[in-house]
């Protein structure tokens, strides 16, 4: 199981990477492993406003439907166009090619309050 040091993490199993006021968001290696084969991804549209803690999309595996929650508030500026056609990219590369969206965050400081890789690893491994 992979927990890249440079990312921040949420209790809902999303990872966040901050550059300036833009965050990239995806689901963690742990989340994709728990879900199993991802077969469908529903993403917001560019321009949508996300509210921290509210669902912004859906990831479906063969067996289950899971909401994905916004780790921060802000405007969606880009979504990963690869995912609708190749949802399994999330399983293959959750932290790189399987990224879900980029958001112009309202308050970049909130990212600092999210879990570190070590905290998140403790969180999921108990």
């Amino acid at each position: 199981m992979d927990f890249p040091e440079e990312y921040k993490y949420t209790e809902d199993h999303e990872w966040v990477s901050l550059e300036g006021d833009i965050v990239t968001v995806g689901i963690t290696d742990f989340a994709q492993d728990q879900l199993g084969d991802v077969v469908f991804v529903e993403l917001p549209e560019v321009g949508d406003e996300l509210q921290s803690g509210k669902p912004f999309g859906v990831v479906e595996s063969v067996k289950a439907v899971s909401d994905v929650y916004a780790p921060v508030s802000g405007e969606v500026i880009e979504v990963n166009e690869v995912l609708p056609d190749d949802p399994e990219t999330i399983n293959q590369s959750p932290y790189d090619d399987g990224w879900m969206l980029k958001v112009r965050v309202v308050d970049p400081a909130v990212v600092e309050n999210l879990m570190t890789a070590t905290d998140y690893q403790t969180f999921v491994e108990g």
Partner: peptide
Amino acid sequence: PVQYAGVIA
């Protein structure tokens, strides 16, 4: 067991 390597495989 619900899966080993993965449902699709």
